[in-house]
Amino acid sequence: MDVFMKGLSKAKEGVVAAAEKTKQGVAEAAGKTKEGVLYVGSKTKEGVVHGVATVAEKTKEQVTNVGGAVVTGVTAVAQKTVEGAGSIAAATGFVKKDQLGKNEEGAPQEGILEDMPVDPDNEAYEMPSEEGYQDYEPEA
């Protein structure tokens, strides 16, 4: 019985440690998101679009440190934060509304985080759909 109880105690310690790591990862992701939003706020009209992409990228980098179902929630929060940063930029006159959601080359930025393969159960990952990809044929 002692062996059984000791095993359960060790398992509990492992769960607590994993929860603490997840909590730490979420806190880091939130900190990076805040950094990115402050970065966007300090940019001029020309830099705002690039700044919004930076927020998304920093958040995406930190999301990889967070495991399990938390990833889905962090990704949703990050996307809403990026959308909010863009709205703030438009409201303050840093950028025109028609410039939001495009990178410096004018290509749409939507789907940055949505296409990231995420499995809350950590069982399997699927690649994003290939609808947006084109076949590449090298020139002879």
Results as ranks from 00 to 15, higher is better:
residue 1 M to N: 01
residue 1 M to A: 00
residue 4 F to Q: 00
residue 5 M to T: 05
residue 5 M to G: 06
residue 6 K to W: 03
residue 7 G to P: 04
residue 7 G to T: 14
residue 7 G to A: 05
residue 8 L to W: 11
residue 9 S to V: 07
residue 9 S to Y: 15
residue 9 S to I: 12
residue 10 K to M: 15
residue 10 K to T: 03
residue 10 K to L: 09
residue 12 K to R: 14
residue 14 G to T: 05
residue 15 V to C: 10
residue 15 V to P: 00
residue 16 V to Y: 14
residue 16 V to N: 08
residue 16 V to G: 13
residue 19 A to T: 11
residue 19 A to V: 10
residue 19 A to D: 01
residue 21 K to R: 03
residue 22 T to G: 03
residue 24 Q to R: 06
residue 25 G to H: 08
residue 26 V to G: 01
residue 26 V to W: 11
residue 27 A to D: 09
residue 27 A to E: 00
residue 29 A to H: 01
residue 29 A to V: 13
residue 29 A to Y: 04
residue 29 A to T: 08
residue 30 A to Y: 08
residue 32 K to S: 14
residue 32 K to G: 12
residue 32 K to I: 10
residue 35 E to W: 04
residue 38 L to C: 07
residue 38 L to R: 09
residue 38 L to Y: 15
residue 39 Y to R: 11
residue 39 Y to S: 13
residue 40 V to K: 02
residue 41 G to P: 01
residue 43 K to L: 07
residue 45 K to H: 01
residue 45 K to M: 11
residue 46 E to K: 12
residue 47 G to D: 11
residue 47 G to V: 14
residue 50 H to K: 11
residue 52 V to T: 07
residue 52 V to Y: 04
residue 52 V to K: 04
residue 53 A to G: 07
residue 56 A to Y: 13
residue 56 A to Q: 05
residue 57 E to S: 13
residue 57 E to N: 15
residue 58 K to L: 14
residue 58 K to R: 12
residue 59 T to P: 02
residue 59 T to E: 00
residue 59 T to I: 13
residue 60 K to S: 02
residue 63 V to I: 13
residue 65 N to E: 05
residue 66 V to C: 03
residue 66 V to S: 01
residue 68 G to M: 08
residue 70 V to Q: 00
residue 72 T to I: 05
residue 72 T to Y: 06
residue 73 G to H: 11
residue 74 V to I: 03
residue 74 V to P: 10
residue 75 T to N: 09
residue 76 A to C: 07
residue 78 A to K: 10
residue 78 A to M: 08
residue 79 Q to R: 11
residue 81 T to Q: 04
residue 82 V to F: 06
residue 83 E to Y: 13
residue 84 G to R: 13
residue 85 A to T: 15
residue 86 G to A: 14
residue 87 S to D: 15
residue 88 I to E: 00
residue 88 I to G: 05
residue 88 I to K: 02
residue 89 A to H: 12
residue 91 A to N: 15
residue 91 A to S: 06
residue 91 A to P: 11
residue 92 T to P: 04
residue 92 T to D: 02
residue 94 F to G: 06
residue 94 F to W: 13
residue 95 V to G: 06
residue 96 K to T: 08
residue 97 K to E: 02
residue 97 K to W: 15
residue 99 Q to L: 11
residue 102 K to R: 07
residue 102 K to E: 11
residue 104 E to K: 13
residue 104 E to L: 14
residue 106 G to C: 11
residue 107 A to Q: 11
residue 107 A to M: 03
residue 108 P to D: 00
residue 108 P to E: 07
residue 109 Q to S: 14
residue 109 Q to K: 01
residue 109 Q to M: 06
residue 110 E to S: 10
residue 110 E to R: 10
residue 111 G to F: 12
residue 112 I to P: 07
residue 113 L to K: 12
residue 113 L to I: 04
residue 116 M to R: 05
residue 117 P to A: 11
residue 117 P to R: 13
residue 119 D to P: 09
residue 119 D to Y: 05
residue 119 D to E: 14
residue 120 P to M: 06
residue 120 P to E: 06
residue 121 D to S: 08
residue 122 N to S: 14
residue 124 A to Y: 12
residue 125 Y to E: 08
residue 125 Y to K: 05
residue 126 E to F: 13
residue 128 P to Y: 06
residue 130 E to T: 11
residue 130 E to K: 12
residue 131 E to G: 09
residue 132 G to N: 11
residue 133 Y to H: 06
residue 136 Y to E: 03
residue 138 P to F: 08
residue 138 P to E: 13
residue 139 E to Y: 10
